[in-house]
Amino acid sequence: MSIAEMLANLEDEAVMAEVKKQISDGVEPMKIFEACQEGMNIVGKKFQDGEYFVSDLMMSSAIFKDVSDVIKPLLGTEGEATIGKVVLGTVEGDIHDIGKDLVHAMLSAGNFEVIDVGIDAPVDSFVNALKENPDAKVLALSCLLTTCYDSLKATVEAVKEAGLTDVKIIIGGGPVDQSVVDFSGADTYGETAQDAVFIAKELM
């Protein structure tokens, strides 16, 4: 079975053993990493098809993170060549992090570098992260509480006021739909963590 298949089957120990074996066999680290990304894509598809559930996504993210920790240091400069940077966080007043963390994992698997400002993140923390990373052109906001729509809106406004007008803003999380896009002034929304990757790629 390939690394991608093992990861897609959530076989954590087998994946790690195979990754370590291939590293010591001298397989190119980038090849191994791509196989893991491929595995995450399969997981994302299974989730979208209703074959996998949230816990499966969480398990796959944990496996991906563990193997990334092993492979990334071996990638050298090649590993730094991501397709882009995304600033991500859950808006102020909201502490739900499961969905945000899945978005983080999927974006990393999709070869994005993610600047994660965490949960209950004040408006300024997003603005500052964007200023510190002028090459980050996408801001992804997670929000699960209707009571935090105002925080979403305030964050979008602050980003615009800070003159960061070329940053595209994607929102997502449980109750978020087009009406929340309209309300907050964000650019668009995504329904799943996988959507975050598709949309970020489009916006790049």
């Binding site: 959530l10 954590d12 949230v54 816990s55 969480m58 398990m59 944990a62 992090d97 499961i98 963390d101």
Partner: peptide
């Protein structure tokens, strides 16, 4: 997050 991992 931790508990779901434990379940696997």
């Amino acid at each position: 997050s931790q508990f779901f991992m434990d379940c696997y």
